[in-house]
Design a protein around this nucleic acid. Structure first.
Length: 270
DNA sequence: CGCTACCTGGGT
DNA sequence: ACCCAGGTAGCG
């Protein structure tokens, strides 16, 4: 499943293997993959455009195309991309196929069908996806504890759901939020605005470390070429209910927050 | 702000 | 035969 490390891996791999190539044509197999517009319009607009660059904003993959168009891709829970020879057999849950120069296809797959793409002139796309309203990137070079404190100030919602809101800070998913709070020794139910300066510093470092380590391990999913990442083997609390906390040995707990699982150590996270 | 819908397949 | 899923938009 896709959190920021997995999205970042996809971005880096695309940058290495797709930039400079031309999207010759597209086939929309599942019209619901389009955030807006029709399959015909999508196919017509994208055909013949060269890929100029690839970047990430929150959990969006943003592919800059020729003439100031951008293709945005969101994996949601289960979506992923594969770059394959154009004669490779097609999986049933393939939602979108981009035919690239060089007899390869970039395919977007998702067994749940939640993944989404959007194609528009870059300025228009930013507005339609509300990219400007997203919070600062946790992985940005200049992200700092004061920025985190500023974004959480006066919020009374529990810190965990606050961290998941990409409009507060952009970069954490459910797994990485749990792992970050565990490392920073902060309880997931703490009202967001009550973190001390020192806690904001610990949390900032924890978030950045968790994301960097996830990327270094190439995420938890298979990548563009189908190679497996190894992140799942290095989790301290996520999906480890009842197992000993690696720091204090007490059992890891699970609670529900806004309908989502939270894993944490009640003994050493305050 | 919290809840639900979105939807399929893998786990129990 | 049930759940349940690492995300988000949209609703009340």
């Amino acid at each position: 499943m896709a959190e920021v490390p997995e999205v970042e891996i996809a971005v880096r791999d695309l940058r290495a293997s797709v930039v400079g190539r031309v999207i010759e044509r597209a086939e929309v197999l599942s019209p619901s993959v389009l955030r807006f517009g029709t399959p015909e319009e999508f196919a017509r607009t994208i055909a013949g455009r060269r890929v100029d660059g690839v970047r990430r904003r929150a959990k969006w993959v943003l592919m800059a195309l020729e003439d100031d168009y951008t293709l945005a891709i969101h994996f949601m829970l289960f979506g992923y991309l594969r770059l394959v020879p154009d004669d490779a057999p097609r999986a049933a849950h393939t939602m979108l196929v981009l035919f690239l120069s060089g007899e390869e296809e970039l395919r977007l797959l998702d067994r749940l069908g939640y993944a989404r793409v959007a194609l528009a002139p870059t300025a228009e796309l930013d507005a339609r996806l509300g990219l400007a309203a997203l919070g600062p990137e946790v992985l940005a070079d200049d992200f700092a504890p004061e920025m985190l404190e500023d974004r959480l100030r006066r919020k009374r919602v529990p810190i965990k759901p606050a961290l998941l809101d990409q409009h507060v800070v952009a970069g954490l998913g459910n797994r990485d939020a749990d792992e970050s709070l565990w490392r920073a020794r902060i309880g997931p139910s703490r009202p967001a605005g009550t973190l001390s300066r020192e806690e904001a510093e610990r949390l900032t470092h924890a978030m950045r470390d968790v994301l960097h380590e996830g990327i270094a391990r190439r995420g938890s999913m298979r990548d563009l070429r189908g190679r497996k990442g190894e992140s799942l083997r290095h989790l301290d609390v996520f999906e480890r209910e009842g197992e000993p906390c690696p720091r204090c040995g007490g059992p890891v707990s699970r609670i529900r927050q806004n309908g989502r699982n939270t894993f944490y150590c009640p003994a050493c996270q305050q």
